[in-house]
Design a protein around this nucleic acid. Structure first.
Length: 299
DNA sequence: ATCTATCCGGACCGCATTGC
DNA sequence: GCAATGCGGTCCGGATAGAT
């Protein structure tokens, strides 16, 4: 007869304690996954949420989960790799490198589709509609790219530890689905589910909302910067090095990193995301206020 | 016949990187 | 700091296939 070893018993108890901590955390935020587990209840604009905004958990905003690396560079493949994070939050990531240029937008839009459905329940969406919502062309390449993004998002395992909030998230995939495929193997219908654990990332207003039209027009690295700025009430100066790490890019010199940061600051300023933003002494200083594209910012 | 969803093709463009 | 480079994404009219 199989009997559990002591370490296994300890692990089991630890898992139970973590699950209880998560449950209590959600209850303290007024969320009981047994009853109401729709993300829409968390989003601004009451039930259903606003249609012109998309949301990103702050724990993702401040990490290198979605990189802004050049598409010429092959995507990294990671196995329980610790991602860069600005604060005391640990993200262990398994899967192909996710990029802001496509995966991020696809995921945000799918979260938007999922917001009115109980987490864990399946829903369908239309690929053409998704292309439209992303402002992508209806080209064969775009369909292919979209299917690849969706596959990449599914083939992930994320484990977030945020001791100040929910503790350990427990591992989950960015996206779960079953699909019906055509004779070529291309998916034509997706039955998508969002893991209920992502509620931990959104609960207690720990997310940032962006004007979707304006956000998706930004370049990938500018989006990493606006995520940083918008996810803090009063953003402290961000070192150029940390900004580069947030973007997941490799710079061959400090001068290039500076120039890269300056260009992204200019992009945010030109598009009215912030009142002022500039690089000084290798730090990015930002002045928020009268921000037209940011709809809410919650620490 | 008409509608809808999907895909093709080729010119064009944006962006990260490179070189000076 | 800036222009050049080249890859790969974008645009959009039109084609195709299947449903009604």
């Amino acid at each position: 007869m199989y009997t559990e070893t002591l370490p296994a018993q300890v692990q089991k108890l630890q898992d139970k304690a973590e699950a209880l901590h998560r449950k209590n955390y959600l209850l303290s935020k007024g969320i009981d996954l047994q009853n109401s587990s729709q993300l829409a209840f968390q989003f601004p604009g009451a039930i259903g949420g606003r249609e012109d905004v998309r949301h990103m958990p702050n724990d993702y905003c401040r990490s290198s989960l979605f990189t802004a690396r050049n598409n010429k560079q092959p995507r990294k493949n990671m196995l329980r790799t610790k991602l860069f994070h600005l604060h005391d939050v640990e993200i262990l990531y398994t899967g192909f490198e996710l990029r802001a240029v496509d995966d991020e937008l696809v995921w945000m839009q799918l979260v938007h589709y999922a917001k009115d459905v109980d987490l864990g329940s399946t829903f369908e969406f239309n690929l053409t509609q998704l292309l439209q919502d992303l402002d992508w062309p209806r080209s064969g390449a775009a369909y292919l790219r979209l299917r690849e993004c969706i596959s990449r998002l599914r083939a992930t395992e994320v484990l977030v530890t945020n001791k100040k909030a929910y503790g350990v998230s427990g591992s989950f995939s960015m996206l779960e689905y079953d699909s019906l495929n055509d004779e070529k193997g291309d998916q034509h219908t997706y039955y998508v589910r969002m893991n209920p654990k992502i509620m931990l990332l959104f609960a207690g207003n720990l997310f940032t909302s962006h004007n979707w039209d304006a956000y998706k027009r930004l370049s990938p690295a500018a989006r990493r910067l606006v995520d940083y700025v918008s996810s803090h009430k009063t953003p402290l100066p961000l070192s150029v090095d940390n900004f580069v790490s947030l973007c997941g890019v490799e710079m061959d010199s400090a001068a290039r990193a500076r120039s890269f940061a300056r260009a992204k600051c200019q992009e945010l300023k030109n598009n009215g995301w912030v009142a002022d933003i500039f690089v000084e002494n290798d730090r990015i200083h930002c002045l928020k206020a009268a921000v037209k594209n940011r709809t809410c910012s919650i620490n």
